[in-house]
Structures are given as structure tokens and as C-alpha cells.
Amino acid sequence: MKGVRHYPGFLPLTILCLVVLYTPLIVVAVYSFNASTSITSWGGFSLRWYGEVFTGREAARFGQAAWNSITIALMAATTATVIATAAALAMVRGGPFRGRQASFALINLPLMVPEIVIAVATLIFFSTIGLRTGYLTILLAHITFCIPFAYLPIAARLEGIEGTYEQAARDLYATRAQAFRLILLPLMMPGVISGWLLAFIISLDDFIITNFVKGAGMETLPTAIFGSVKQGIKPNIMAISTLMLLVSVLFVTAAYLINRKGRQSP
């Protein structure tokens, strides 16, 4: 008898799940260190493709794309986090009110509608109002779909903070603004940070919507990689992919650690 939690076969399926998820990533990471120009055969360990990423023929193009990606992600994640924090305060601390359900649906709308539909709609919108597609249109689109990703961890965190903390602060002579700045904001910070990190990653990752609203000549890292892959997978792409993989892992680790710390303190 191994207890009601045990089901035979679940461990092998879990391992299968992880193998499926990781094999392609590990294979690409390994091949990014391949010395051979041919992507098929192994020619020994080398960092030449990483050098190629930073100094090679396509370095300028990918460099510009990476710059666009990072600046857009920084601005989009920050703006979306501010909007989402405000929304979470209203939703969690606002009590029951008319339109609360509708507001919740609205905030989560970008998660419900398929990306390709958002892409089409956004392109049509910018085209109709005569806004030239480019950096600005990408940024606006990213802010919009980042909001729910930032919202969810922030609201979850806020729901875990009892209202009595703010009351206690007010009782101890703090104004509303002081109660927010000195008590509520520090307490909800772990949620705000993980919301920001997730929004940042989501923005950095987006391909479909960006591809629609980027306009000619403007590239972000994913669209640049996609364009390059269309002509075949080259080793420098594998090096870039591995670097981006690393960034994702770092971000998830950061979010994980912040969340764990946040759970321990209150």
C-alpha cells in the first residue's frame, strides 16, 4: 500500500513530459557549441557561433532587433504593470460594484482572444486611424496584451494581503497616501515585480502580433529570427536561441525566488 496519492505509471509519464519539453531545447543548446559549419555533423566544441552573433555579418541586424525588443519590452512591461497595479487595487480593494465582472472580463480579454485575431484587429485599427506601423505601434500593441499577464500575479498577491494592515496604518495616524506608500505597496511589491517580469518576457517573446504591426524594415528579435529561419536554420540562430533561452531561465528563476521570498515574509 503506497497511499492514495500514488498512481503507478504517473512517474514515467512525468519524465516523458519533461523529456518532450526539454529535448529540443537541449539539442539546440548543444549544437550551438558545434565547431562545424554544417549544422548536421558534430565538429567539436567551439564558441565561434557566439562570436558570430556579436561580430558576424548579421550582427548589426540582430543587434538592432535586440535593442528594439529590449526597449519595447522595458516600456511595455512598465506601462502595463502600472496600469495593472491600478486595476488590481480597484478590483481587489473596491468591494462589490456594478461592472466589476465586466471589468474582469475586459482585463483578461487579451488572454481569451486568439493572438492572430488580435494581430489582425490591431493592424486594421492602426491602418484606419492612419498610424504608420513601426516602433510605436508595436509598443502600443505590447502594452495592451501585457496587461493581463501583469495583472494576474499582482491581483493574486493583493488578495492575500488583509485589509486590516491598511486599517492599522490609518489607525496609527497615517493618511491614505502614507498607508499606501508605507504599508500596501511594500507588501504587494513581490506581486508587482513578478507581474513586471512576466510582462517583460511576454513582450520579448511575442511574434505573431509584432509581425503584423511592425511595418517594413522594423524588426524585433523574434521577427528577425523568423525571417532568418525561413532561409534555413543556421548555427548563429542556435546561438541566439540559446542566449534567449538563458534570459528566460534567469527571469523565471528571479520570479520564482521573489515569489518564494514574498510568501515567507507576511
Binding site: 488583509e162 486590516t164 494592515y165 486599517q167 492599522a168 496604518a169 490609518r170 489607525d171 496609527l172 495616524y173 497615517a174 493618511t175 504599508i183 507588501l187
Partner: peptide, 16 residues
């Protein structure tokens, strides 16, 4: 509440 010279000990303390 912050203008009342009254303080509260909360049921679950609400220590920051």
C-alpha cells in the same frame, strides 16, 4: 481614522 486619537488592537493583530 488617522485624525482620531484612538488606537486599535486588531483581532489578528495586523502587525506589518
Amino acid at each position: 481614522p488617522n485624525l482620531r486619537p484612538v488606537n486599535t488592537v486588531f483581532q489578528h493583530y495586523a502587525l506589518f
